[in-house]
Design a protein around this nucleic acid. Structure first.
Length: 89
DNA sequence: GTGATGACGGAAA
DNA sequence: CTTTCCGCCATCA
């Protein structure tokens, strides 16, 4: 599980990663880790596979603040997965 | 030991 | 595009 924490820490600022993207074999664990781990993890950079947010408005703003490309109420995964993208909000 | 739950995912309708 | 259903691993009652 420590690996999961590490991977979450490695998510570049301005981009996001999905639960399954962090651990394809245990996306539920990733969620449990984020819920139980009290370290300073970039939890807001972890979104669902379809780009929908799990922590509501709160997470939304943090992502926008980091310049994560959004599409309505969800994250634009095509762009958000990479660190450099052409579009801007 | 079994059964239910959750910051989920993918397929099917 | 939406809703339903089943599978996933670890934890809890």
């Amino acid at each position: 599980m420590a690996a999961i924490v590490v991977r979450i820490r490695r998510i570049p600022r301005g981009s996001v990663q999905t639960y399954g993207g962090i651990d394809p074999e245990a996306p539920r664990l990733v969620g449990r880790v984020l819920a139980t781990t009290h370290q300073d993890l970039p939890w807001h950079r972890v979104v669902r596979a379809d780009g929908s947010l799990s922590q509501g408005q709160r997470q939304r703003e943090l992502l926008i603040e980091e310049g994560v490309p959004m599409r309505g109420d969800r994250v634009d995964m095509k762009l958000a997965r990479r660190k450099h993208f052409s579009g801007c909000t």
